[in-house]
Computed example of a mutant assay.
Amino acid sequence: MLTILRQKRGEGYVDVAVIVLAAMLCIALVVQVAPVFVVKNQLDTFASELIREAEITGRVGSETSSRADELKNQLGINPTISWSKTGRLQLDTDVTITCTMTMNIGLFGGFGSFPIELTAKASGKSEVYWK
């Protein structure tokens, strides 16, 4: 029995099985983490589009709210939006937007999963002169 256990004839098969298992775990990790980078890019786009709307219209109000609803439908995300100022923005007034969103990251569903908060900030200046 000891001579059978000491033989190295099947060692290559075990090595291949371990390497395939490790490769599949790495691929599973990439598949779980990649969507976070996509959502972060969408969140950055969301913030920059909204700040541009505020710059063009010269206020944070109904125009920016309707643009936010439109972007939520287009991008498929629903972030929390906070503005540094609301209402009319006089010419060259600074305004900042912060969009935050929470996503779960981890492997195998609930096992090893933890939430991370994604944040996107954008700032701009009003281009409208209010009399």
Rank of each mutant, 00 (worst) to 15 (best):
V16S: 10
S84K: 08
I19W: 00
T3C: 10
Y13T: 10
E55S: 12
M24L: 15
T45L: 10
R6F: 11
G109A: 03
G12I: 11
I51V: 15
L91W: 11
L107F: 07
S123G: 14
E11P: 00
I27F: 07
E70L: 11
S84P: 06
R88C: 00
L25I: 10
N73Q: 12
K121V: 10
C99S: 14
V38Q: 07
T93D: 11
V39R: 04
F37V: 05
I77A: 15
V14L: 14
K40P: 00
G58S: 08
G76Y: 11
A54K: 02
T45H: 02
G12L: 14
S62H: 08
G109D: 03
V60P: 02
T45A: 05
F37W: 11
A34T: 14
M103A: 05
N73Y: 00
F46E: 10
V31F: 05
V36K: 00
G76K: 15
M24C: 10
T86Q: 11
A23D: 03
T119Y: 12
G76M: 09
A28C: 07
S82A: 14
R59Y: 00
E117G: 03
K8S: 13
T3G: 15
T100P: 02
S62G: 02
Q42F: 03
R52A: 13
E55M: 14
K121W: 08
T3K: 11
Q32R: 02
A54E: 02
L25H: 01
Q7E: 15
L5Y: 11
M103T: 07
T86C: 01
V60Q: 01
K72R: 15
K125H: 08
I56T: 09
K121Q: 12
T86D: 04
T98E: 14
D15R: 07
E70R: 09
A34K: 03
I27L: 13
T45P: 00
T3V: 11
G58I: 05
C99W: 08
Y13F: 14
E117S: 09
T100Q: 13
S82D: 08
T96E: 09
Y13D: 04
R59A: 01
I81N: 03
S66P: 06
N78M: 14
V16P: 06
A120W: 14
I77T: 12
E63A: 12
I51E: 00
E70W: 12
N78Q: 15
Q90E: 06
L91G: 03
E49T: 02
I19T: 07
V14W: 05
Y129D: 01
V38M: 08
G110T: 04
A68V: 12
T119Q: 13
L21I: 06
F46K: 02
P115A: 11
F111I: 04
I4N: 12
V31K: 00
Q74K: 10
T100V: 07
I4V: 15
L75H: 05
D15L: 13
M101T: 04
G124C: 05
G110A: 07
V30C: 11
S113T: 11
A22M: 09
R67T: 05
S113I: 05
L2C: 08
T119P: 04
V36R: 01
V36N: 03
Y129H: 01
V30A: 15
T64W: 04
I27G: 04
V30Y: 09
